[in-house]
């Protein structure tokens, strides 16, 4: 197998909050000791509630958040970078190879630039094209891939619907010829009828151009449909990672299972009388000791309150960090969605 496009080892992102002259400031680990590998050409899903650190992890991988501990390696056919220690020139080159698609297509596009200029800007800033003709040709080629026509290129973003705007954002991310894209909640703001269209476009880009994706989402049913591999985060830590089918047919962590059961079923007669997850995600400034999930876990035992569980292999490529992953079948206790996936 070729080297993974992204390999993160023991990645930690620490933020300092509340500075004071005398006392030391408080710090919080938005991401703690996370190791993941994204295989080339893979559609890698990252899920978790808000506050779980999934966006921070995505940004650290793009070198847009500080890497406080551990390593992130990026590798493609041409280059390999150790992102914790890159030079300025390497980082500049990395920016062409790794791109980001944002959540809100209404906020991500400048209202004063035409669509052509929005898509062309990365080319001009990075100096990828020399003449205007070259730029135009490249913009038209990428726009066509994202199903935007010449007429669209002359207009301003306000004339477009949410789905079209997200296609413009995608074109802008693609124009520098990246090999790796982080899509952070890229369909969360879209109507379901259009969401499917944008998801199909992203999958097509993955297939046709061989681009690897880190797809960050809180929507497990979307992730189940588009991703090859899924990682689940809780309060800065990785709790489970597995090939999509394995994760959805038999989750090995009670948090994953609880997330699955929380998805509202389309069947009106299956009105979930199952155990819903109680409470909310605790503050990362003061994470619970032991297993971070124990405050909300109905399976928690004494050991969970003191010992931090390590990720253990439960099947091929399937890792979970729960002391009792072998002992319990969580799907029997949490909702119907998980059983339905079998």
């Amino acid at each position: 197998m070729s080297t993974p496009v992204i390999s993160a080892r023991n990645l930690t992102v620490t933020y300092r909050i509340g500075h004071s002259l005398l006392g030391k400031g408080v710090s919080l680990n938005a991401v703690e000791d996370v190791s993941i590998e994204i295989e080339r050409g893979n559609f890698f899903g990252l899920v978790g509630e808000s506050g779980s650190g999934k966006t921070t992890l995505g940004r650290a991988i793009l070198k847009a958040a500080p890497i406080t501990g551990g390593h992130v390696n990026y590798t493609d056919d041409e280059v390999s970078y150790d992102l914790a220690n890159v030079t300025k020139a390497e980082l500049k080159d990395y920016r062409k190879r790794a791109q980001l698609i944002f959540q809100d297509p209404y906020a991500a596009l400048s209202p004063r630039m035409t669509v052509r200029d929005i898509i062309a800007e990365p080319l001009e800033v990075m100096g990828l094209t020399r003449t205007r003709e070259e730029t135009d040709a490249r913009v038209r080629e990428i726009a066509a891939k994202c199903r935007l026509n010449l007429e669209h290129l002359r207009r301003f973003p306000h004339a477009f619907s949410g789905g079209q705007r997200q296609r413009i954002s995608i074109a802008r991310a693609l124009v520098s010829g990246p090999r790796f894209i982080v899509a952070d909640e890229s369909v969360a703001a879209l109507d379901v009828s259009i969401q499917a269209d944008v998801l199909n476009l992203l999958k097509q880009i993955q297939r046709d151009m061989g681009i690897s994706f880190l797809f960050i989402s809180h929507d497990l049913s979307v992730v189940a449909h588009v991703c090859d591999h899924v990682a689940v985060m809780y309060l800065g830590r990785l709790v489970e990672t597995a090939p999509t089918r394995a994760l959805f047919s038999r989750p090995r962590h009670p948090y994953t299972s609880a997330l699955l059961s929380a998805i509202p079923s389309l069947d009106p007669d299956e009105r979930g009388e199952t155990d819903k997850l109680e409470g909310e995600i605790p503050s990362p400034t003061n994470p619970p000791p032991g297993c971070r999930f124990h405050t909300r876990c109905r399976f928690a035992r004494d050991r969970c309150r003191t010992d931090v569980p390590e990720l253990r292999e439960m099947g091929p490529g399937h890792f979970a960090s729960c002391h009792f992953a072998e002992e319990f079948d969580f799907t029997q206790h949490y909702g119907s969605a998980a059983t339905a996936a079998k």
Partner: peptide
């Protein structure tokens, strides 16, 4: 029908997501 077909369903991971064509 279009709205329902566009929804990702956990029961059937192999089904294609079918968008409602075009925009409102």
């Amino acid at each position: 029908r279009g709205l329902l077909n566009a929804l990702p369903k956990l029961e059937d991971l192999d089904s294609e997501l079918t968008p409602v064509p075009g925009d409102i």
